[in-house]
């Protein structure tokens, strides 16, 4: 699904954030990327989604056999890459339903499928709403405008459920959520697990992984993945903290 090799990236001011990330995500797998603040987690998500302001200086990313960087941000999305934003953006005057239908129809056009009219789209949406415990009123409001923190995150997962991506990257979707909202988000993500869909969870805390069980856990530190293991690693991180990994890079590399 996703093959990241020796990925280096820097900001426009020249600061290097990613310093050689290697990661391989297979079909149907759930990977968690954990790490302290400033380790490069969100930069990795932004670079994969195609946000401007980051320069890739070295390395490659292959997504389903294609060079990811040869595609524009919107083309990546139409090819099935989805980023759940850490800070979802408020968009004045654009109705949530209208926005999401435009997004889904852009993807359907891309795949050569017929577009959905408002009625057909509503039927798709109704099923997903139930799953995520989202009220109809959220759909009639402008995208994320005046939403609470929890509503914004739920709206991200709702969009993901409607768009059914092949590769979903969730950037700190768990941050700022109370336990009920966290459960709803987890239910949404777990509901999407499928043999042909891969999920990358970026998180600071182990908490989310109590609800979404990853196949692999990686530790990102100072722009590199310093440790990869199964889900037990998350529990270990919770006990020992991130500091120990930075201090013992040799041990981590083993």
């Amino acid at each position: 699904m996703l093959e990241i090799k020796n990925l280096h990236s820097r900001l426009e001011d020249g600061r290097e954030i990613l310093k050689g990330v290697d990661l391989s995500v297979g079909d149907g797998e759930v990977h968690a990327i954990m790490g302290p603040n400033g380790s490069g987690k969100s930069t990795l998500a932004a670079v994969l989604a195609g946000r401007e302001g980051y320069e890739v200086t070295e390395g490659s990313v292959t997504y389903r056999g294609r060079d990811l960087f040869a595609m524009s941000a919107d083309e990546r999305a139409r090819e099935g890459v989805f980023l759940a934003f850490q800070y979802p953006v408020e968009i004045q005057g654009v109705n949530n339903m209208y926005f999401l239908r435009a997004a889904l129809n852009a993807q359907r056009r891309h795949r050569g499928e017929p577009e959905l009219d408002a009625g057909q789209f509503l039927r798709v949406v109704r099923q997903k709403l139930k799953l995520l415990d989202i009220g109809d009123d959220l759909l009639q409001r402008a995208v994320n405008v005046g939403f609470s923190g929890g509503e914004k995150k739920r709206n991200e997962v709702f969009q993901m459920a409607v768009l059914e991506p092949r590769l979903a990257i969730l950037d700190e979707t768990d941050s700022g959520l109370d336990i009920d909202a966290l459960r709803v988000v987890a239910r949404g993500v777990n509901g999407l697990r499928a043999p042909d869909r891969s999920i990358v969870l970026i998180t600071h805390y182990k908490r989310l992984l109590d609800y979404i069980e990853p196949d692999h856990v990686h530790v990102l530190q100072d722009g590199r993945i310093v440790q990869s293991a199964d889900k037990e690693l998350a529990a270990e991180l919770e006990r020992r903290g991130y500091g120990t990994f930075g201090e013992q890079p040799e041990a981590a590399a083993q």
Partner: peptide, 20 residues
């Protein structure tokens, strides 16, 4: 970027923002 990250082509996304 938010609109484009959902697959909406650049020109269409700009129109949506202007109309909004």
């Amino acid at each position: 970027f938010y609109l484009r990250s959902r697959g909406i082509p650049d020109a269409e996304a700009r129109h949506m923002l202007v109309e909004g």
